[in-house]
Amino acid sequence: MGSSWKSLSKTCRLSLKDSKHDAANAYAEAAKCYKKVDTNEAASCLERAVNIFCEIGRLNMAARYYKEIAEYYESDQKFEQAIAYFEKAAEFFQNEEVTTSANQCNLKVAQYAAQLEQYEKAIKIYEDIARHSLNNNLLKYGVKGHLLTAGMCHLCKADVVSITNALEKYQDLDPTFTGTRECKFLADLASAIDEEDIAKFTDVVKEFDSMTPLDSWKTTMLLRVKEKLKAKELEEDDLT
């Protein structure tokens, strides 16, 4: 009799879990429908799905749907909300030891943080990913790119000391970075900023872009730096 009750109890628990799983999937399907007309409702449905998946221990599914919520807000250019959900997704992926997906989400956080001029936050993410990628055979080839984007965030702060110190740190972190075009690019840009030479800055950017085309994010960051250089030049002209 005791074993029968145990078996029945186990079956009931499994049925309940299956029911919750079905409910979570139903919310996910509803989100697909809402996505076409109302991003907020779609995100709300997915958040309900995430809560259920967390209850039944399906954390990988929860991570995937947090990422999807972030992408909804990303498509609507609601970057602060996107950042919040990419951060949640990254945390869940990291807890599940899905490092590549965690890195992808964290890179999105850094990208949008920089766009919102949260440079220190972006710098920390790029530097952390670069550091953790050094000893990974699959990820180490992306290190110079992460250090380049971190360096460009330093440039946006218009602080020559900051970028100079960062370059020293990056070369200590990865000695191979010293001989790269990315390192030379950052150093030449820092020199142009230090000399307040807009023409030199423009030439350095054009030369690098001719060999390694700059994407829209990098272009935006560099335009910000150039605008600050122009503003400084105008300020000094007004004083003379």
Score class of each variant (00 low, 15 high):
residue 102 A to S: 15
residue 201 F to G: 00
residue 94 Q to M: 08
residue 73 Y to V: 06
residue 188 D to W: 01
residue 233 E to T: 08
residue 66 Y to I: 05
residue 51 N to K: 09
residue 139 L to C: 02
residue 72 Y to G: 04
residue 198 I to S: 09
residue 31 A to G: 10
residue 17 K to C: 09
residue 68 E to P: 00
residue 89 A to E: 01
residue 240 T to V: 11
residue 173 L to H: 10
residue 188 D to K: 05
residue 19 S to G: 11
residue 37 V to E: 09
residue 16 L to P: 02
residue 169 K to I: 01
residue 190 A to D: 01
residue 66 Y to L: 05
residue 79 F to L: 15
residue 159 D to Q: 00
residue 166 A to C: 08
residue 153 C to Q: 00
residue 158 A to P: 01
residue 180 T to H: 06
residue 115 Q to C: 10
residue 239 L to N: 14
residue 67 K to Y: 04
residue 112 Y to C: 05
residue 74 E to H: 14
residue 107 L to C: 10
residue 231 A to Y: 08
residue 41 E to C: 02
residue 161 V to C: 00
residue 172 D to Y: 06
residue 60 N to L: 08
residue 216 S to D: 15
residue 92 F to H: 04
residue 9 S to Y: 05
residue 238 D to Y: 14
residue 190 A to Y: 00
residue 226 K to Q: 14
residue 98 V to E: 12
residue 201 F to Q: 05
residue 35 K to E: 15
residue 223 L to T: 13
residue 6 K to F: 03
residue 32 K to E: 15
residue 113 A to F: 02
residue 228 K to A: 13
residue 44 S to T: 11
residue 8 L to D: 06
residue 150 A to W: 07
residue 110 A to R: 08
residue 1 M to G: 14
residue 125 I to V: 15
residue 91 E to R: 01
residue 17 K to N: 06
residue 76 D to E: 12
residue 237 D to A: 12
residue 214 L to N: 02
residue 57 G to W: 08
residue 107 L to P: 01
residue 167 L to M: 09
residue 60 N to T: 09
residue 230 K to M: 15
residue 144 K to W: 08
residue 215 D to I: 04
residue 127 E to D: 11
residue 201 F to W: 03
residue 45 C to V: 03
residue 115 Q to A: 10
residue 149 T to L: 13
residue 193 I to R: 00
residue 203 D to E: 15
residue 38 D to G: 09
residue 78 K to I: 11
residue 104 Q to T: 11
residue 48 R to M: 11
residue 128 D to E: 15
residue 192 A to L: 05
residue 111 Q to W: 09
residue 40 N to K: 14
residue 203 D to R: 09
residue 194 D to N: 13
residue 40 N to A: 13
residue 19 S to T: 14
residue 169 K to V: 07
residue 32 K to S: 06
residue 107 L to R: 11
residue 200 K to S: 12
residue 191 S to W: 00
residue 202 T to A: 15
residue 12 C to G: 05
residue 112 Y to M: 04
residue 113 A to C: 09
residue 22 D to E: 11
residue 8 L to N: 06
residue 31 A to Q: 03
residue 228 K to F: 12
residue 21 H to G: 10
residue 12 C to K: 14
residue 154 H to N: 05
residue 113 A to Q: 11
residue 224 R to F: 10
residue 96 E to P: 07
residue 57 G to Y: 07
residue 116 L to V: 00
residue 64 R to S: 08
residue 152 M to W: 04
residue 210 S to Y: 04
residue 23 A to R: 10
residue 62 A to M: 06
residue 79 F to H: 12
residue 101 S to G: 00
residue 168 E to R: 10
residue 147 L to A: 08
residue 236 E to R: 15
residue 235 E to A: 12
residue 183 C to H: 11
residue 48 R to Q: 15
residue 24 A to C: 13
residue 66 Y to M: 09
residue 49 A to V: 06
residue 187 A to Y: 03
residue 125 I to T: 12
residue 23 A to P: 00
residue 151 G to Y: 01
residue 49 A to N: 04
residue 157 K to G: 03
residue 96 E to K: 12
residue 233 E to Q: 13
residue 153 C to N: 07
residue 125 I to M: 10
residue 193 I to N: 00
residue 76 D to T: 07
residue 129 I to G: 07
residue 202 T to H: 09
residue 233 E to G: 01
residue 70 A to M: 03
residue 133 S to F: 02
residue 16 L to H: 13
residue 36 K to T: 12
residue 16 L to N: 12
residue 153 C to R: 07
residue 62 A to Y: 05
residue 142 G to Y: 14
residue 195 E to Y: 01
residue 43 A to E: 08
